[in-house]
Design a binder for these strands. Sequence first.
DNA 1: CCGGTCGATGCAATGGTATTGCATTGTTTA
DNA 2: TAAACAATGCAATACCATTGCATCGACCGG
Lengths: 140, 140
Amino acid sequence: MAHPLEDTLIARQITPTPMRLLVLDVLQKEPTALSLADVEQHLKHADRITVHRTLKTFTDKGLVHRIEDGSGAVKFALCAPACTPELHRDLHVHFFCVRCRETACLPAVPVPALALPGGYQVQETSLVVKGHCPRCAGAV
Amino acid sequence: MAHPLEDTLIARQITPTPMRLLVLDVLQKEPTALSLADVEQHLKHADRITVHRTLKTFTDKGLVHRIEDGSGAVKFALCAPACTPELHRDLHVHFFCVRCRETACLPAVPVPALALPGGYQVQETSLVVKGHCPRCAGAV
DNA sequence: CCGGTCGATGCAATGGTATTGCATTGTTTA
DNA sequence: TAAACAATGCAATACCATTGCATCGACCGG
Ligand SMILES: [Mn+2]
Ligand SMILES: [Mn+2]
Ligand SMILES: [Zn+2]
Ligand SMILES: [Zn+2]
C-alpha cells in the first residue's frame, strides 16, 4: 500500500533491505532486461558483489528471471506475479538487439510447445531472437 | 575423395592445415557439441588460442554453428551441408543436460516460426532446452 | 537493557572464458 | 629468390562470475 516495493519483496519471502529496494526500483523502472553491470551503473555507490547476491536472491525467490542472451553477461528482468520459485510461468521470447545490445522481454510472444524426441526431461526452455530492435532498425 | 576432411574445408573456402584437419576430425567424431575446452582436451598438445581461432574461422565460413547453452562456455557443432556463411539454414533446437552438461543438436526439432511484434528485424534465433538427457534421465 | 545469533553487506581474492598483441614460422606468389 | 601473406604459438589482457572472510546491524531471548 504505502510501500509497494516492500510489499513486493515480502510477497516473495524476501526480507526488505535498502539495497534490495533500490535494485527492485531500478528493475521496475527500466523497460529492458538489465545485467549486473547495468544495475551497478544505475546505483553508482552500490557494491557490485552485493548487487550480484541481491539478483541471485531475487532469482531464487522467483521475483526475476535470468536471460542468457549471448552478450556475455546474464541479464535479469522482473517476473510476472504468477511466477513462483518452483515454476517459472512467465515463459516468453526474448529479443537481443545486436546494435544497442539491449534485451527486451516479449511477453506477447510465448515460447511454443516443442515435441522433443523421447527420453528428454525438460526443465526449462530459453528462446532468444537476435537482430535489430524497432528503434535500431528504424535508425539504420 | 581420398581426403574427405580436406575436401570439406575446401568446399567452405577454408585452407586446410594440420590443425584445422585435427579440429574438424574431432568435431565430426563427437556426437555432442563441443566447447573450446572440450576440443582442447581431445587435442592435448594443441594450443588453446589456435583452436579458438580455428573455431572462429569455421564459424565465419559457415562450417560450424555456435551454441550458447548457458553453461558459461560457447559450444560448437558442425552445420548441415546446406548452410552458408550468410545464411544458417540448419536451424534446430539444442538440448543442454544440466547433469552431464553435454549439449546435443536436435536436428529433428526445427525452431518454430515466431510472430514477433512489428518493427523487429530478426537475424538469428536460438532455442535451448534445459533438463536431463535420455541417458541422465534414465540413470537418475 | 544486554549479549548472542543470524542475515546482509563490503572488500579482497580467485576462477574461468574470451580476446588481443606480437613475434615467429611456413607457404604462396611475383 | 625475395616479398607478401596466412597461420601458429606464447604472453598478456579483459571481462564476468563466484567465493572467502571480516564486519555491521537488526532481531530475539533472557
Ligand atoms: Mn523476460
Ligand atoms: Mn546444432
Ligand atoms: Zn537496438
Ligand atoms: Zn546428460
